[in-house]
Design a protein around this nucleic acid. Structure first.
Length: 485
RNA sequence: CGGGGCGUGGCGCAGUCCGGUAGCGCACCUGCUUUGGGAGCAGGGGGUCCCCGGUUCGAAUCCGGGCGCCCCGACCA
């Protein structure tokens, strides 16, 4: 026994590891429909915690939730030229309903800018109605050629924020505020620190003036675009006639933003923290933060009784705790199962512990060189649990930041060097760029790397590169290259 | 959509070359003994062999055509 119970190791085959982990941790499964997935309770539970945290942040930044319909008239999607060009290949279109062919085909939303704008046009008359800040938690469909669980499925869950502002400055600022919200969430809840920045023209959202993104580095050193925030300018408001009367009585077009994160974040979570044992969950988004495993109960049921009373005390402290009281599963099996599912802390309690008023505490991840198991008094376990969860949360973030920086390269000057890194370990490569899209294309063709973003100031190198990596030209900006999901 | 691999109880596979009435491990069910890192013994249940067609006395196996999944690319959150 044993061998086939283990996951494929990350070093052996990262993709296989990723897929196996999803099945073994019971996060998701393939649905009968090609490219779409069923999110199982454990996976959805994590998503719910992520949703809650994000939704709170959206409310704090003045947004209200709404619901727009799944179906959008084809003519709406076609209104904005770049928008339809970008989305056309991925559209799922409804042509029949009620046994008849529809007069106008309906698109299953790939994103909702168009229908939101069409309604905003009705709702907004005056500058006093602005800003209008809306968000919705919905499913969308994009018929992708190659799908991967969580990373790219034909249907996925996300939130899409849509705002309308009176001035370009305000809209642009809001785009950045939401990028910051995403970054904050990724760092402080998911412990997945992204590099943030501006997308190049060729990589921006179809229909946007400017797109900003969060680029998180996975354990295989590839980048995952984990969230985007777009400044749409008046591209959509002009097409949908979203106008308002300004303070001085002039009719003006509104300025829009839109931004979204999806269940792709779960893929990012797996590839940021997962190890060869399985998933690793940051405490803040773990459906269960502490699992208590009773080991060999006594005749009088006192071991289970103690486990349950400790559980109640932890729950009273606001810690999500569960006793695994299944009597038909061996303790060893339970240990492996909860590790596979990524539960941050496990408490083991048996007759021996009962006698000594102690408990065995096992952390899913510990700082290097520290033992995973420690024995401490029940009182101490209860008293320090909250602190331990916090420090584990911090440890995961520290580890991820370190990994990201350890795999970032800042003194690369030629495409040859870039290619060597891409063919070797991979990672983020910071270089100068003249701004010519032809350089982007050449680098993509030669190295497989794409321009992830023009990083925000704090990510830039202390020594600004002064030459473009691709041409004998002055560098106009520092950019980040990486292979991406 | 191109290249490669694969579809056989829930999962992982053998059997396919060379046609003869489907098997192994894990999981599952029952009972007893166990329980501090994936338990042991005994008994038991479960499969239109991806689908459709063809060849044949007979097809998981041979032939034709579909469909699906995975991996690597190009496209994308």
């Amino acid at each position: 026994m044993g061998k086939n119970k283990q996951l494929t190791q990350r070093s052996e085959d990262f993709s296989t590891w990723y897929n196996e982990l999803i099945f073994r941790a019971e996060l998701a499964d393939h649905s009968p429909v090609r490219g779409s997935m069923v999110i199982r309770p454990w996976g959805y539970g994590i998503w719910e915690h992520m949703q809650r945290a994000l939704d709170d942040m959206f409310k704090e930044t003045g947004h209200q939730n709404v619901y727009f319909p799944l179906l959008i008239p084809m003519s709406f999607i076609e209104k904005e030229k770049d928008h339809i060009e970008g989305f056309k290949p991925e559209l799922v279109v409804v042509t029949h309903a009620g046994g008849k062919e529809l007069e106008e085909p309906l698109v299953v939303r790939p994103t909702s800018e168009t229908v939101v704008m069409s309604m905003m046009a009705k709702w907004v008359q005056s500058y006093r109605d602005l800003p209008m800040k809306l968000n919705q938690w919905v499913n969308v469909m994009r018929w992708e050629l190659r799908t991967r669980l969580f990373l790219r499925t034909s249907e996925f869950l996300w939130q899409e924020g849509h705002t309308l502002h009176a001035t370009t400055e305000e809209a642009e600022e809001h785009t950045k505020i939401m990028l910051g919200v995403y970054r904050n969430f990724m760092e402080n809840w998911m412990a997945m620190p992204p590099v943030t920045g501006l997308k190049s023209e060729s990589e921006k959202f179809a229909g946007a003036v400017r797109s900003y993104s969060c680029e998180a580095m996975m354990q295989d050193n590839k980048a995952l675009q984990a969230g985007t925030s777009h400044f749409l300018g008046q591209n959509f408001s002009r097409q949908f006639d979203v106008t308002f009367q300004s303070e001085v009585g002039k009719e003006e077009f509104g300025w829009n933003t839109s931004w979204g994160v999806s269940t792709r974040l779960l893929g990012g979570l797996i590839m940021t923290h997962g190890d060869d044992q399985g998933l690793v969950l940051p405490p803040k988004i773990a459906p269960i933060q502490v699992v208590i495993v009773p080991v060999k109960d006594l005749e009088d049921g006192s071991v289970l009784g103690k486990a349950e009373s400790m559980c109640s005390e932890l729950i009273a402290q606001g810690i999500r705790t569960k006793v695994d009281s299944r009597d038909f599963v061996n303790p060893g099996s339970k240990f492996y199962e909860w590790e596979r599912k990524g539960v941050p802390i496990r408490l083991e309690i048996g007759p021996r512990d009962l006698e000594n008023n102690q408990v065995v505490l096992v952390q899913r991840v510990v700082p290097e060189g520290q033992p995973k198991k420690e024995v401490l008094s029940q009182l101490e376990a209860l008293g320090t649990m909250s602190k331990k969860l916090d420090s584990l949360q911090g440890l995961l973030l520290d580890n991820a930041v370190k990994r990201r920086e350890d795999n970032s390269y800042r003194k690369v000057k030629t495409i040859t060097e870039l290619k060597e890194i891409m063919d070797g370990p991979g990672g983020y490569v910071y270089t100068g760029w003249c701004g010519d899209p032809a350089v982007e294309l050449a680098i993509k063709e030669q190295t497989g790397a794409t321009l992830r973003c023009i990083p925000e100031e704090e990510f830039r190198s202390t020594k600004t590169p002064h030459k473009c990596i691709g041409r004998d030209q002055k560098s106009e900006m520092e950019v980040v290259w990486a292979k991406a999901y």
